[in-house]
């Protein structure tokens, strides 16, 4: 079997580019929805808040500066082809180099501390990243990466529902989580929902869901309908842009699912602010 070598330098440069670009350039899916929602708002304050956000995102792109000061903790979903060898410093080290270079040379904020409870000393280069790797057949590496801000991360939740809770239980937990978050996660938000697997799998799926375009729907029509229904319900809450009231509380709801245990139905809700930043690359 032929093995493909990828230079660590090539990988690290690709990662650096992903993090700079996702922080400077908001996705078209988000920009289109912000613009459409502004038209749809009745309240002048809601319209004005959305205008500030749209103007902000244009300034960031034009001037190549981050759209938000919280440029996030670096999160990567990697599909690693089983016929790839990363030459040189190795895969994880090359990714960390890319993150370091992006945050240092891209004027991104360094927001990571070395220890969660006791030391809390800034690592000064935003490493380490959180890397989720899956081994897939092939000779390529596909990476989807994003900077996850913590205003919204802090409003996320996991609940171990049991099978009898059914779809109504899922709905209630998602809606309760969004209602509780209120104005804090910088609405309008993107809601990532992970259902199934185990405790940690559900959380990972929820994060993965926020890294999907809000213009895509779940491939199973029942979940696609649930995404639409939840979005409709959330936008009736009158939380609104910046939490000041209005019809635009969420821009999208994305669900990811996985088989689960006969006794369980884990559900995770990962909330992302309107600066829902992610970019992908294939190497």
């Amino acid at each position: 079997m032929k093995v493909r070598e990828i230079a660590a330098q090539e990988l690290s440069s690709a990662v650096e580019k992903l993090f700079k670009e996702c922080n400077y350039y908001i996705g078209d899916d988000i920009m289109d929805e912000l613009t459409a929602c502004r038209e749809n708002e009745d309240s002048q304050l809601a319209k004005d808040v959305l205008t500030q956000i749209i103007d902000n995102d244009k300034i960031a792109a034009d001037e190549q500066i981050p759209m938000c000061q919280d440029t996030g903790m670096a999160v990567l979903f990697v599909e690693y082809g089983d016929r790839v060898v990363v030459d040189g410093e190795g895969f994880d080290a090359a990714v960390e180099s890319g993150v370091r270079n992006a945050y240092v040379s891209g004027y991104l904020r360094k927001s990571v501390v070395n220890d969660p409870v006791f030391d809390r000393v800034n690592t000064k280069d935003n490493t380490p990243a959180v890397i989720h790797t899956t081994i897939v057949p092939g000779d390529k590496i596909r990476i989807t990466a994003g900077g996850k801000g913590f205003g919204s991360e802090n409003m996320s939740a996991v609940k171990m529902l049991t099978p009898s809770a059914g779809v109504e239980g899922v709905k209630q937990f998602v809606l309760d989580t969004v209602r509780y978050a209120g104005p804090n996660p910088c609405p309008p938000i993107v809601v990532g929902v992970g259902i199934g697997g185990t405790f940690e799998k559900a959380a990972q799926l929820a994060k993965k869901a926020t890294f999907r375009s809000i213009k895509t729907r779940h491939e199973d029509a029942r979940y696609a309908q649930l995404e639409e229904e939840l979005l409709g319900e959330i936008n009736k809450m009158n939380i609104g842009p910046a939490g000041l009231g209005g019809k635009t509380t969420a821009l999208g709801v994305n669900i990811e699912t996985y088989p689960t245990h006969i006794a369980g139905m884990p559900v995770a809700v990962n909330i992302c602010c309107h600066a829902c930043r992610h970019k992908s690359v294939e190497i």
Binding site: I59, P66, M67, Q69, N122
Partner: peptide, 27 residues
């Protein structure tokens, strides 16, 4: 309140920045 996530726009209204204390805390 300022609008959360309007960071690049808000920066246009800052004219001068002076470090006062706790420099070791960085940002």
């Amino acid at each position: 309140i300022a609008v959360g996530g309007a960071a690049a726009l808000i920066a246009k209204s800052i004219k001068k920045v002076d470090l006062i204390c706790y420099e070791d805390l960085g940002t």
